[in-house]
Design a protein around this nucleic acid. Sequence first.
DNA 1: GATCCGTATTGACCTGAAGTCAATAGCTGA
DNA 2: TCAGCTATTGACTTCAGGTCAATACGGATC
Lengths: 232, 232
Amino acid sequence: MAVIRGLRRRRRAAASGDEPARPRRPRRRIRLENDQRKAQLLALGQQAFSERTYDEVSIDDIARAAGISKGLLYHYFPTKRDLYLAGLRATAADLIERTTAAASPELPPLDRMRAGLDAYLDHVSRQARPFVALMRGGIGSDPEVVGVIEGVRATYVERFLDNAEGTPLAGLALANRPLLRIAVRGWIGFVEAASLEWLSRKDVERTTLRDLLVDALLASLRLGAAAGPAPS
Amino acid sequence: MAVIRGLRRRRRAAASGDEPARPRRPRRRIRLENDQRKAQLLALGQQAFSERTYDEVSIDDIARAAGISKGLLYHYFPTKRDLYLAGLRATAADLIERTTAAASPELPPLDRMRAGLDAYLDHVSRQARPFVALMRGGIGSDPEVVGVIEGVRATYVERFLDNAEGTPLAGLALANRPLLRIAVRGWIGFVEAASLEWLSRKDVERTTLRDLLVDALLASLRLGAAAGPAPS
DNA sequence: GATCCGTATTGACCTGAAGTCAATAGCTGA
DNA sequence: TCAGCTATTGACTTCAGGTCAATACGGATC
């Protein structure tokens, strides 16, 4: 595009002397502190990526929204993916922090689970659009993006395995049993899928869903701890 | 436009006089029947997309692998996404067909579930790489890609709701209960997540995993049908 | 065997967005 | 007032997806 523009301008200037190549007063530059600018761009990126798909958002869009040149954006974030990842990481950290804060260790185990899941569903409700977009594929199979999401999941796997110590399942050497690990990991998938379904309809109370998720976790732990097949 | 084309050609000719503009005998064209060529490209696309990421695969790569020009590829598949989608649809149809064939209606309900899940896990094992890639994000939040995957899930939701009619849960007007729908949808997420975890370690027998999934389905149906919260 | 013709096939080209970099100008401190 | 640091610019490059008028293959016709 820029190449073509250049060509066009030269051609026009040569062919038709009617446009006097106006000196193009450059608009006044506005300098921001390094941190301010970075925070601004991060926020604008988060907003853009939560409203549109990764590749529907162009770097030029964000630069325009910030009132700066594309080159400056690349000064702060070396690639488009980095900008996306920075926003994703911030959101992930926020999610972990909120759920951690809610699930106080002083609560009885079941209440901890409930409180944690309430915080999770709360976050998911408020961030519905970007959450759905992310879970539906986000950016295409990028290793680092997958890494962030898997990191959140792994955090929860550990947390719920630990938390289970206070339940009737305590003392089972939980984390080392392969089947149990699969069951808990499966339950995380259950939570995400159930959340997406819930968001798409909202025809169930949040507390009802939360209780379903708690029950499903208890059932998963039970099934993962017992090795037996289903009764025929 | 014509002007630009002319410019480029002239510039090249003028700049590089060292290359004697070899007459470039065009390689012999090989004509294939319309259907043959399309099938070939589809197969090559499936292979490429199963080995590499969506945007790691370039159209030129596939065209080169087929020994044809890029233009021809676009004659058969209007966009890169279309080629990807065609392969995905074929795989999805294959999965549905295999699981449907395995889960014969003549089997008792629990055996049907087992057989269906066996077929599912079998497919997932053989297609491990592309399956993981797809579930980890595939192509970035493309509506049609999501549509194909959601279509498969919806098929299974209906199937297992139907199949449940033969179990102790029969006669509950299953499909219309929002919470039950969420529970079954959640279970699908459980299956996918558990399958991914299983594929990454393979430290559990397939039959063990299958039985876990069956038990999880039964538990999900039970929880989704009963509205009550967990006992505190 | 010559030639005609539908259509499979080509490759040069366009386009648009990501990413680069040398030059420029706003601010701060002396 | 001026110097210097660095935030900022925008023209440029690169690259992959996508277009299209021209071409040539191969079966049908004589």
